[in-house]
Design a protein around this nucleic acid. Sequence first.
DNA 1: TTCTGTACTTACCTTGAGGTTACAATGAAA
DNA 2: TTTCATTGTAACCTCAAGGTAAGTACAGAA
Lengths: 133, 133
Amino acid sequence: MKSKKIDWDKAKQLCEGLTEEQDALTRELVSRIADKWSLWTMAVLAEAGAALRFSRVMEHVEGISQKSLTKTLRGLERDGLVTRKVFAEVPPRVEYEITDFGMELLDQVAPLWAWVAQSVNMFQHARTKFDRG
Amino acid sequence: MKSKKIDWDKAKQLCEGLTEEQDALTRELVSRIADKWSLWTMAVLAEAGAALRFSRVMEHVEGISQKSLTKTLRGLERDGLVTRKVFAEVPPRVEYEITDFGMELLDQVAPLWAWVAQSVNMFQHARTKFDRG
DNA sequence: TTCTGTACTTACCTTGAGGTTACAATGAAA
DNA sequence: TTTCATTGTAACCTCAAGGTAAGTACAGAA
């Protein structure tokens, strides 16, 4: 536990060097990243290891609507996490690809994700216990 | 980049061992953890290193409303991330404290948080560039 | 007896996420 | 000429997050 505390202190220390605006942006980014579809979409592009058409992405992100996928991809593009390439063809062809920056982000998220996946039973247990009491 | 890919593969591998329900719960937990107030509230309790009264917590989580703090703390309690102790006094006294499980979670989040804080300028730059084009 | 302090709780409102459905645009194919 | 295929956009709806403001409960202080 003590070795891990270093991580937390490091994060705290970094945040103290930020302006108020940057601090707010950090919080906004952290919660934006973890929205319903962004991580999943990025993961699909990462696993593909290549550019994917809109409809290919949609097939892999199960349950997402066209509208939400459009919005999600736009947001990711805006943040520099994916690229969008439009081909002047008919019917239209648009390809999305994850950027190096996006891969970096995924790599940062991966340990947290793995820990949560590992701890799912802890959460489930805590919840049922709470809901009974 | 290649060394980091290991993390992602590990996360992916872990997720494949989950039931569909657990997989959905993992996604839900990741996005719930990153809501507007949960991480901040946990950070306050972690830094305090002791049990804090409701009103003390509220002072440190700047901008949160009473209602949202109540809801946030209940959610964290339900997930076993903080404890809630009620003292039978008048006026009422209620103390909140982060659990070991909660500290573990913070330790997992810390590197991601630090990376985002470090990368704020990248995000800002990407956004202004996108918004101009 | 009225006021105070604490931790909620309830009612009401605004905002944004996200879903569904329908429609646009258009060259190639049938 | 009609249909198809693809990537959107626009209109409309629901739901949940989160804010504000007011009320609740009650022992002790004034």
